[in-house]
Design a protein around this nucleic acid. Sequence first.
DNA 1: CGTCTTTGACCCGCGC
DNA 2: GCGCGGGTCAAAGACG
Length: 159
Amino acid sequence: MSSSNFLPQDSPESDYAEQTNFELSDYFTFDEWLEEEHASMIFESVQNPVYRANEVIEPGASSRHHEGPSNGDSESGTEKKQVKERVAFKTKSEIEILDDGFKWRKYGKKMVKNSPNPRNYYKCSVDGCPVKKRVERDREDPSYVITTYEGVHTHQSTS
DNA sequence: CGTCTTTGACCCGCGC
DNA sequence: GCGCGGGTCAAAGACG
């Protein structure tokens, strides 16, 4: 019986951009919500399971993971403010693989100590799509699934 | 045959 | 300096 509300909109085929038009959500830093209890914050989003977080990453910030194994010195100019958009969804469902119209490739699974359930990491299979998806189960409500989208799709959904 | 899943190992940042 | 936590990649296997 998963006739619950998977997505706020009943038009999964709609453009993702359309769905990202939730201005009813609150604007807060992801860090803030991280400090707070996930469940607590999103708990109110049961009806509006859509949260939008804009994080501004400064050029000086160490957002460089491990791509250039060269000896330091990797100042490739083109350094500008990178705005990462993160959206947290909380939906009540048994399955965590909620198809939103995009193709995702699982690239890792990790176990969080605060939760007896593992955390899954998904990435868009589309080339040039830096969008990442993080799926986690609510530790207090295993029936709830928290999906966190990171980035913006640079392509249309497969529809 | 191509794509995706799965698991372990590795890496990074921070705290103490 | 080391440990912890979290996040990512990679190789092999499974699957269509």
